[in-house]
């Protein structure tokens, strides 16, 4: 559990998502990383059905799971407050079905390969919303370090050799929390940020058509 940076890698026009994922994977393998399994991060949305005033958006809670922390479940509110609980929390959310309902067809998933390079863990995967491909996600974790501001230099060096200029700046979520002791809830918040961006993009695409 070290400092983690999560980025969405843009798919250039004319190429399929799968092809770009393969290119990235080959690049990582060239660095000398060894394959060490798969990873999966998924996200469910629960929306409040309590009636509040008309202009206020109903409250949403996002429930995320990360295969890197298999015994935990993360719950994030729309004010970015993150609760880390164990996996029974899912059952608890189902008990709240009269107050918070799960949004159908809103399940986002990021799945792919996991690599290890020394003390780094690299992940390349594709994100999909209800089964349809939305984008590519790259994650790099440096396990020994717990403070983001210390190791941004070396993370940037490694990231740039994998994703190039996408990693010029640390991810926005991490920028605000650079000084504090890192915890998995920050990683999961970064994923949620990216998922929300994908959702907005697909919503605007649909409106555009």
């Amino acid at each position: 559990m070290g400092v983690t940076c999560v980025y969405s890698y843009p798919v250039p026009d004319g190429k399929s998502g799968q092809a770009v994922v393969e290119i990235l994977q080959r690049q990582i393998e060239l660095l000398g990383a060894l394959r060490s399994g798969h990873f999966c991060v998924d996200c469910d949305t629960f929306q409040s059905i309590l009636q509040t005033s008309i202009n206020v958006q109903p409250k949403t809670v996002y429930i995320l799971h990360n295969s890197e922390q298999p015994a935990s479940c993360f719950a994030i509110t729309d004010t970015s407050l993150c609760l880390t609980a164990d996996t029974l929390f899912d059952g608890l959310m189902h008990q709240l079905k009269n107050y918070y309902q799960q949004r159908k067809n809103a399940k986002m998933e990021a799945k792919g390969q996991r690599y290890e390079l020394g003390d780094f863990i690299l992940k390349v995967g594709s994100a999909s919303l209800a089964g349809s491909f939305k984008g590519i996600i790259v994650e790099v974790e440096y396990c020994p370090c717990m403070v983001a501001v210390d190791c941004w230099g070396l993370m940037k060096e490694l990231l740039q050799s994998v994703v190039g200029s996408v990693a010029d700046q640390p991810p926005p979520i991490l920028k605000n929390r650079q000084d504090e002791l890192y915890s998995p809830s920050i990683t999961v918040s970064q994923y949620l940020d990216i998922f929300n961006n994908f959702r907005k993009l697909s919503a605007t695409n649909q409106i555009g058509r």
Partner: peptide, 20 residues
Amino acid sequence: SNLFSAPCHKCGKYLQNAMP
């Protein structure tokens, strides 16, 4: 204390073989 934040004095890079 600057293990992760200082580059190497000789080559100027942060990482060599994925090590600071």
